[in-house]
Structure formats: structure tokens, C-alpha cells
Design a protein around this nucleic acid. Structure first.
Lengths: 200, 200
DNA sequence: ACCTGAACACCGTTCAAGT
DNA sequence: ACCTGAACACCGTTCAAGT
């Protein structure tokens, strides 16, 4: 934060590496950047990152954790707006999920890449579950307040999560635009119809 | 087909390479096999595959095309069984989709990998659309026969596709089992409830 | 305490040369 | 016509050595 741009890198190389990694994820090139490129951009030798991360998978796990934190925040941020209806509020959250993926597609793919989980870092799974918990909480409250059909909330949350995950990925792959207009809105509407329908 | 096992590889190296690649995809190691490992297993030098495939992406595209062909066949195969109800028939197709992904997870991931589409081979997209067309066709017919709510069939098909895609991936990642029992069945039921519900 | 230089065992891809 | 051998420009990772 103190900005020592152009210094020789002292204690905060770890933080610098994460920052540069997020910058690279923001570019076009996909999430499979190389450790050597990361080191190059951070201005250090390719061996230096290994003093701060055990392996590439370890670095990816850190990025994935931060990704889930940001996704969770994006979902939570939709909770207290004044929505026209409970359903509208929920739809807003769903759109925020898909928008997060669309705006951070390299990070989103990294979060689910398997390479991140392969690190063995349990925080990846824990933070994925934390994001899921936001969906589950909203659904549980929706059932209590009566606008969602009452059945196992976890089942509804899983249906919601899988729908949003698939929608995010296929949308980012550019496969939906040619199939129908407003694919995201339509798919979310079908999801909500299902969650509201009685008699599972 | 003539089986010249143990020969020196003549004209059918291309076919051999594809066969070995599918075998590797059937193993545990993920879909990111190396061209050199493929060549090794096929018993040739690592330069030989490049006489039959322009690049690794080109090879992956061929595998992806065949994957979509197989997925399409798996979906079509569920069409003429005697089902207890139209909805049951549709649910069977949905389960076949998820089961295909679960039983061929490396191939399924490859099909959506981007590396395959990056080859520029238009057959990948064409065959992906062919698989989608099966969903669309069943939904259109379901609307005509009246058991599905009548609205834009493409929108419903997109909702179905994205749900099954997300469900397949998250299920394969092992992320659903701990959340609820019968996650696949439950998510498919929510999907169908949505597709059947009037008033989108 | 933190980074560098050189090394190891790999990649994808190319291309002259062999059969 | 089809494959090999050697090469090029890369990787992730390690480790003795420098500052």
C-alpha cells in the first residue's frame, strides 16, 4: 500500500505476486498463466516465487480462495437492496452470480479448475461452501417467508447453484447468444419457476 | 479393424492415436495428456503425430467432436423407451446426460475446454449444437403435446442445457454429495418443475 | 531473510534426413 | 508416403550459492 514502485522487492513479494496474478487473470489470455511469466512481470527470477508459494497449485489455491471471497461478497451485496418483490431480489442475486463469472471469467474458471483443489488447501473448498451458503440462506428464508415452495432447502440451493454455474460457463463460452435472446434472464426465470412450483 | 497388433504402424496411425487418446481419457489422469505421452503409448516418435494432426488443439477438436457425437447418441437412445409419463421420459434423458458426463468426465471436460474450440475446427461447435438440438426437439414436442408449459422452446432448452452442464460438472467435482442426498435427481426435478410451470 | 544462477526433467512444434 | 533424430524455445521445480 505504501507504494515503493521501482524498488527491488523486499518483504512484500508474495503480495506483489498475487496482485500481478490477478492482473493477468484480468487479461484475455486465460487462467493458465505460467509461473515464469508471473515472475517476469513481478520483476524477479523464476525461482523467487517458490520462496512464497510451495507450488503453482498452491498459488492457484490462494487465488481461488480470494475468488470465492469476492463471489460471496457480490452475492451478499444484493441482499439489502429494495427489490420490487422477493423473487426480484433473488433474481438480482442470480444475475450478480452470472455477472461475476462473466466479468472475471479467468478467475471463475480457475476457481473450479481442479488444479486449485489439487493443492490440498482446504480453504478452497471451505470458501466454495461459504458462497453456497449464501444461496442456501436466501432459499431457506424464502421458504420461511412463503414465496418459495417448501421442500428441502439444500436441494433447491443445489439446483440453483448448478443452474448458475452452467449458465455462467456456457454464457462465457459464447454458446448461448445464438440460441435465444436474453438467455441468462430466461434461464433464471425457469429456475425460479421451478423453485416456486409446489409438488416437487 | 484388421488387427495388426505389434506391427510397425503403417497407414492407420491416425486411428491408433485417437484410440489411444480415448483410452487415456478413460483413466484417472485428467484430459490434459501430453502429445509426447500419446506418441509413446502409440509406439512412435513424438514427432509422428504431427503428420496426422496439425497441432494438439487439432487432435483435441477431433476428440471433442466424437464426444459430442457420443453424447448426442446417449440422449437420443433414451427417446423410445416406454416411460411411465412424458416427464419421466424427459427425466431419463436428463439423467443420461449427467451420467454421460460422470462416466466420461475427462472427455466431457475436454469437449468444453476451449482448447478444442481454439483449433478453429467448426465441427466442434456444429456437433455441440447437434447435441443441443436433441434437447430442443424434445422440449418442442413436449410443448406441442401439452405436458410442458408453452413458451419459447429455445429458452427452455437453454435453461435445461445450462442446468445439466452445471450439474454434471459440480457433481463430477464431488461438491454436491455433502450438500444433499440425491442431488442429481433433486436438481432435475426442480428443472422440470420450472419447465412445466405456467406463467414465466 | 530473501533472491539468483544453473540445472533437471519435461513440454509442443518444426524440419532435414532416413526408410 | 510415412516416420525418426535432433533441435528450438519453452515449462515447473530444486538447490547450492550469493547479497
Amino acid at each position: 500500500m505504501k507504494s515503493s514502485e521501482k524498488s527491488y522487492h523486499h518483504g512484500d513479494l508474495r503480495r506483489s505476486l498475487l496482485k500481478v496474478a490477478f492482473e493477468m487473470l484480468g487479461e484475455e489470455a486465460g487462467w493458465q498463466f505460467t509461473m515464469r511469466e508471473l515472475a517476469r512481470r513481478a520483476g524477479v527470477t523464476h525461482a523467487a516465487p517458490y520462496k512464497h508459494f510451495e507450488s503453482k497449485a498452491d498459488l492457484l489455491a490462494e487465488l481461488a480462495v480470494e475468488g470465492f471471497v469476492r463471489l460471496t461478497a457480490a452475492l451478499v451485496a444484493t441482499q439489502h437492496d429494495g427489490h420490487a418483490s422477493p423473487r426480484e431480489g433473488f433474481v438480482t442475486m442470480c444475475k450478480a452470480y452470472v455477472a461475476f463469472g462473466g466479468n472475471n471469467i479467468n478467475l471463475y474458471r480457475l476457481m473450479w479448475s481442479g488444479d486449485a483443489r489439487a493443492s490440498g488447501n482446504p480453504r478452497v473448498l471451505a470458501h466454495a461452501n461459504a458462497a453456497f451458503a449464501v444461496l442456501l440462506d436466501r432459499i431457506t428464508r424464502g421458504q420461511h417467508s412463503g414465496w418459495l415452495a417448501s421442500r428441502n432447502p439444500a436441494g433447491q440451493a443445489v439446483a440453483c447453484w448448478t443452474q448458475l454455474h452452467g449458465l455462467t460457463l456456457l454464457s462465457a463460452d459464447g454458446l448461448l447468444e445464438s440460441l435465444t435472446a436474453n438467455a441468462i434472464d430466461v434461464a433464471i426465470a425457469e429456475l425460479l419457476d421451478g423453485l416456486q412450483a409446489p409438488r416437487s
